[in-house]
Design a protein around this nucleic acid. Structure first.
Lengths: 162, 162
DNA sequence: TATTGTTATACTCTATAACTATA
DNA sequence: TATAGTTATAGAGTATAACAATA
């Protein structure tokens, strides 16, 4: 099993990460959709439950743009899972308060997330699984911690009056 | 280092895969951009060099839509790295022929890809790296092999005459 | 002046449909 | 009829700009 193969294919890390990430994301979306949630809604619910947090704070935690946060909170409000409440200390800011129904939804969605992760990891023998997760964590905190500056992704300013 | 933490955070596989995948993709794009290539152009060049292949065949290999393939080949032709040649056996099909300059570019881009992968994996101790890659391969061929049917992503037919 | 949240909209990416020419 | 390749463009996702209210 070791290396009967000639020079061949160095492990294509890009392919492996893209593929696994994509499949897991697809499964997760489908599983959460069954209770009417997106991954972002789940993320916001969970972190809004932990303590009083503003939209900006929740956006930072979930690595979303603040405008993306607006639509996510809109969806949560529309579903009756959360509400915008004025902050008592900053009249510009909105605290995202999770409703009782929202708390129940968060509990269920966390179970779904855990289940989907567990199902994926079940493909690995126990010892291998442990090393795998440790390695992923090492990558996340190590050399793959930050994306390189990407000067190519400049977006031109939008025309005024158009 | 093991578990001084209470119940806390089950390993968030989604986050880990998304994050590592995203950072690696960003680095790869930046590195390939230095020689004027995208990941797709690299992919097409390499596989077009291996043997005579049509656009459709190359699209399948790279998991692209045939229309995405068109723009990728357009870019390669414009850069002088490949040419469309009529197939001798099927007058509908085009063989993607890599130019000499394209072959040189493919060599350089493969070195870049290998280097970026090696740099990422360098964060892992040798034995852990081996297990990590084996585990990723297991996931790719196992439970995470295929995306679930996603009935939500139906795209409506476009209006005629609009 | 800077920041929170909002609206409106522009940009990128990708896939669909429709088409031509072949098979 | 089905397939290879092309064109045009729709749709999704997301980020930018400008703004109002407040710090």
């Amino acid at each position: 099993m070791t290396a009967m193969v000639p020079t061949r294919t160095e492990p294509d890390l890009s392919f492996l990460l893209d593929r696994t990430g994509h499949v897991l994301r697809t499964r997760m979306s489908a599983a959460l959709a069954e209770i009417g949630l997106t991954a972002r809604m789940h993320c916001v619910l969970v972190h809004a439950l932990e303590e009083e947090r503003t939209q900006i704070q929740l956006a930072e935690i979930g690595d979303m743009d603040k405008t993306t946060m607006v639509v996510t909170v809109d969806a949560l409000e529309e579903a009756g899972l959360a509400e915008r409440r004025p902050s008592s200390t900053d009249r510009r800011a909105r605290i995202i308060a999770v409703t009782e129904e929202g708390a129940r939804a968060a509990k269920r969605s966390q179970e779904i997330v855990d289940r989907v992760h567990a199902e994926a990891l079940a493909a690995l023998p126990g010892d291998e699984r442990e090393v795998f997760l440790r390695a992923l964590n090492r990558l996340v905190t190590g050399h793959l911690a930050d994306p390189v500056e990407s000067p190519q992704q400049v977006r031109r300013a939008r025309q005024r009056g158009k």
